[in-house]
Design a protein around this nucleic acid. Structure first.
Lengths: 120, 120
DNA sequence: ACAAGTACTTACTCCAAAGTATGTATCATG
DNA sequence: CATGATACATACTTTGGAGTAAGTACTTGT
């Protein structure tokens, strides 16, 4: 396997990385600051839009709805809206979203251990 | 626990979120595109700087060294340099870094399943 | 003498992600 | 009659994360 001299761009390399590295594949879907946090809050049960907003005070409405849309487009969660007024919209994890729970859980576990000083 | 009206900024909210949400705590440390990928490559064994560079062709040298420094500052990996010439620098996971392996492994597992269509 | 390999550093630029600040439709409530 | 709650949308601005490109110091190989 020779090293390709300089014939490829970063974008082509990214395609290569995608094919080679599984973590890269996941990062393309939840690799942002807010997405795992949103998924964490949905892991404890379905939530309305406003419940998520209150659960994550640091996020702006624009970011929240943007990431919810992206997560929905990536089939990680399902949006359900009842045609009533005031609107009643619920978000819940999809099958693939539930599949992410071990990741989210492992993240939470690590954090609790780290905050307890278990790694010092 | 009343809801504080509008007296706090996003930054203050972020502090709050940090205290409340474990996933947020982790995202502050590895919440970037490249860091989990770097950790994944170190999970299979210690690596020299140039080995990481070749293992992750899509990353630029600047990004690689920048993230390595940050991961070192966050005590997730350990840098060891032998005072020889040419330089010989090795990176390996710290205790906290090893603690992240379940997270990385869960990420990889999910990706393989997702690529196999297990979630469709 | 000059290129190549090692592990970086620094300066400059750029674009997309994120923040700020509004607007919208509908109904209940005071 | 105006405010609040709901679940968004949209325009504008800003920031910082990321890319490009070049340089550094030292030695080995040809």
């Amino acid at each position: 396997m020779g090293i390709a001299k300089e014939s490829s761009t970063i974008q082509m390399n990214k395609q290569f990385a995608l094919a080679q590295c599984p973590v890269t594949h996941l990062m393309e879907k939840i690799g942002s600051y807010w997405k795992p946090i949103i998924l964490y809050h949905l892991s404890t049960g379905d939530k309305r839009y406003s419940e998520l907003k209150r659960a994550i005070p640091a996020i702006t409405e624009k970011m929240l709805i943007q990431h919810l849309k992206q997560l929905e487009a990536d089939h990680l969660l399902i949006r359900e809206s009842k045609p009533v007024v005031p609107p009643f919209v619920t978000y819940r994890l999809s099958k693939a979203g539930y599949g992410l729970l071990p990741v989210i859980q492992a993240m939470a576990d690590w954090s609790f251990k780290d905050m307890d000083g278990a790694f010092q």
